[in-house]
Amino acid sequence: MALTAPLPKTTKARGRRDDTRLALLFILPALIGFLVFMVWPTLRGIYLSFTKFNLLTPPEFNGLDNYIRMVQDPVFWNSMKVTVYYVFVNIVLQTMFALVIAVMMQRLTKRTWLRGIVLTPYLVSNVVAAMVFLWILDYQLGIGNTVIAALGFDRIPFLSSDAWVIPTIALINVWRHVGYTALLIFAGLQTIPETMYEAGRMDGASEPRMFRSITVPLLRPVLALVLIITVVGSFQVFDTVAIATRGGPVDSSRVLQFYIYDVAFGRFQFGYASAMSVALLLVLVVITFIQYRVTRADSSDLN
């Protein structure tokens, strides 16, 4: 339909409809990716969790067998415990360090290169980071233990004792991810108006006081989002364990993702591995939901 005369009202309505189409077009690539790489594998994973499937011959439906086995499997419950322990140590330390680094980035320096340096560990791949720390922390030959021994202390079996292994892996991953987390928090800090701090200074508040009463409350929505992202990511710890300990000693670092991987690709029990993945999915959904509600991530105290 060709228009010869401008009709302000309809053009406006038409323009809005055109926007929707354009928006859909922009969303399309991401949507296709989301459907093909997220929704479809998730649905297929849920289907496979009700089957006996060895990857090479067609799956056979076996009802709830995998779930019944999961509830009775002590190794599964142990991995769940180990994973939660890891997430707790990892997230607490990482968030604390990241917050301190972010505040220092904002309050102490304006130099871009100095802010950039914080991000460098994140540029190292997980596998490489794990390998490097594996060598540094080796009981006999690692430089870390050589230094400890030179200082007159007993060598520490960082990755080969059940007491040390999870804190060590958690710290390796803190080292790698803290810069990235700090950067996210730093972006959040930038949204806090400088006038707030000026007002604080006028009233004679100290830096720690301003941190407690201005920074933390106003940072809450960003912090909540960062926590949701990092907790979900933390639950999926895999590479560091696969490289550094392969679940050992005994089962003390057999985190859920590694157990799932081992069952699927080491023991060819894809159905059971899928069932455990579904369990992990449910855990993450529940945790994310609780986090979202508790931290009121969708509202801000700024307005």
Binding site: F37, M38, P41, T42, R44, G45, L48, V127, H177, Y180, I229, T230, V232, G233, S234, Q236, F238, D239, A242, Q257, I260, Y261, A264, F265, A273, S274, S277, V278, L280, L281, L284
Partner: peptide, 21 residues
Amino acid sequence: MFRKLKMGATALTVGLLAAAC
């Protein structure tokens, strides 16, 4: 750190591991 949810992630990681080898 944000690896995608569920099996896709595991399969992906395996692919990466294999590729890394």
